[in-house]
Design a protein around this nucleic acid. Structure first.
Length: 467
RNA sequence: GGCCGGGUAGCCAAGUGGUAAGGCGAGAGUCUGCAAAACUCUUAUUCGCGGGUUCGAUUCCCGCCCCGGCCUCCA
């Protein structure tokens, strides 16, 4: 079965094959570290993390490049406001970003290039574009000349005329064409800048991705990802730059874009102020639950972020961990590889179909149920293996069940473990003595402290924190 | 205004030209000293509305309504 991906460029699902067998080149637009990431940003990185894991499993080697745009006017503005250098702002924000990604179990990319380390490549690419007649100098700016490219607009489905007609911005007077966009812009002495043949300045928004993709992945990349809002203008312009600089050598074979996280039906965004950061949400639920909540809708669909959705994700993981806990002594391995593949086939099929995580999650639910119902040890082992493997493939079920059930929000100090175990001992003694009133009082006491008990056969009692 | 998406049970969310996965929630039962968990059963005669094509449409076509996004920094 082949992996099928929806390609924004063709607006249809296409079977995926890397250009070079056994090696996938993946580029995803990373953060601009001017401020903390929010759940909407995180969704993109979780979605592409799932893609990355799947590609690795299917094709072996993947070069995953996810850049950091550490040169940007919003960073300049933030730095100016604080009266510090841009590196202070970016260092702090990048550290927070990495912490957020780790909390959501997003794997680090193979390379995480920064714009500040690729100025030379950017300058070289701009020079090439000028030399080939695709860019021109005007009032200290270097601009990409859109009419110099025949099929500009084909990725986003916009014609140039439409774009001009719908333009809501004032067109800078020095542009030869209203659609022309900046490759290099002059910096005043108080702004970060680098020397170039066109004077001291800084790169425009789109050129850095073209240059970094070329540097780390070469002329043609297999998959380029990002949020839907990047299709235009960012990816359209990136494509124009790369194709023109490379003399028409194919740039991206599959364009993949994720949908937005909304809040009450509206796009989550900084400007609307309706955003939640991973850090805030981590006080409500473990990172794994946040990750699952982000995978509960198909990556191309909008996802409405709600507390209920997060709770449902946590409850679903509780189910899976409960199933694992019940099968504690059973090894997670199938007796024979064939059996393993068979029970996991629905999951694999769903993932292969354009990363249909909602359906894949459904398959895992069924596996958890099957694990609970299985009576035969070999069967249990196969279901357990399939559940753990499938969930692991999308970055879930990474904890030992006993640890999972001990989770409590950071900063919250519930009953300590010694006290809990001590009370459980006392309750067991009371039960043995048929003093059920006392036993129930202890249960109540623990419940008030957020600890729930489960009596198991054999006189054992397990506990978990309510959340 | 132009161009894209989407409208499926109380909520979330897949899906298919042949009669609606799964999760959360709710209800009943088995089990249990009581619980919890697990297991069993129930919870959309119906997929925004109106037409059309078809033996048959939620799924294809047309129109309409509503919601969101992009066209400007944005995952």
């Amino acid at each position: 079965m082949a992996l099928v991906l929806y390609n924004t460029a063709t607006r249809r699902k296409e079977a995926f094959e890397p250009l070079e067998p056994g090696l996938v080149r993946l580029y995803v637009c990373g953060p601009t570290p001017y401020d903390y990431a929010h759940i909407g940003n995180a969704r993109a990185f979780v979605a592409f993390d799932v893609l990355y894991r799947l590609l690795r499993a299917r094709y072996g080697k993947v070069i995953y490049v996810r850049n950091i745009t550490d040169v940007d006017d919003k960073i300049n503005a933030a730095a100016r406001e604080e009266g510090v250098g841009i590196d202070v702002v970016t260092a702090r924000t990048i550290a927070a970003f990495h912490a957020d990604m780790a909390a959501l179990n997003v794997l680090p990319p193979t390379v995480e290039p920064r714009v500040t380390a690729h100025i030379a490549q950017i300058v070289a690419m701009i020079a090439t574009l000028i030399a080939k007649g695709h860019a021109y100098l005007a009032e200290g700016h270097v601009l990409f000349h859109v009419p110099s490219m025949v099929d500009y607009g084909s990725l986003s489905g916009h014609s140039r005329d439409e774009l001009i007609a719908g333009a809501r911005i004032d067109v800078a007077p020095y542009k030869r064409d209203p659609g022309d966009f900046v490759l290099w812009k002059p910096s005043t002495p108080d702004l970060p800048g680098w020397d170039s043949p066109w004077g001291r300045g800084r790169p425009g928004w789109h050129i850095e991705c073209s240059a970094m993709a070329e540097t780390h992945l070469g002329l043609t990349i297999d998959i380029h990802g990002g949020g839907r809002d990047l299709v235009f203008p960012h990816h359209e312009n990136e494509r124009a730059q790369s194709l023109c600089a490379h003399g028409g050598v194919p740039f991206v074979r599959y364009w993949v874009h994720n949908g937005f996280v909304t809040v009450e039906g509206e796009k989550m965004s900084k400007s609307l102020g309706n955003f939640r950061t991973p850090n805030e949400v981590l006080r409500q639920a473990p990172g794994e639950a946040i990750r699952l909540a982000l995978l509960a809708a198909h990556y191309r669909q909008p996802l409405d972020w709600t507390d209920d959705g997060l709770k449902a994700a946590k409850a679903r993981l509780d189910n899976w961990y409960t199933a694992l806990r019940l099968a504690e002594g059973v090894p997670a391995e199938a007796a024979e590889p064939g059996a393993f593949a068979a029970v996991l086939s629905d999951f694999a099929r769903a993932m292969d179909d354009d990363l249909n995580t909602p359906m894949a999650l459904g398959a895992l639910d069924l596996l958890a149920g099957a694990l609970n119902k299985a009576t035969d040890r070999a069967q249990k082992a196969a279901f357990k293996a399939a559940l753990v493997f499938g969930a692991g493939m999308i970055g879930l079920l990474n904890h030992a069940p006993e640890d999972w059930f001990k989770w409590q929000p950071p900063g919250v100090e519930g009953l300590d473990e010694r006290a809990i175990l001590d009370l459980i001992e006392q309750r067991l003694a009371a039960r043995k003595a048929k003093d059920f009133a006392r036993a129930d009082a202890i249960r109540k006491q623990l419940a008030d402290g957020g600890v729930l008990l489960e009596d198991k056969p054999g006189g054992r009692t397990e506990w978990k924190r309510a959340s």
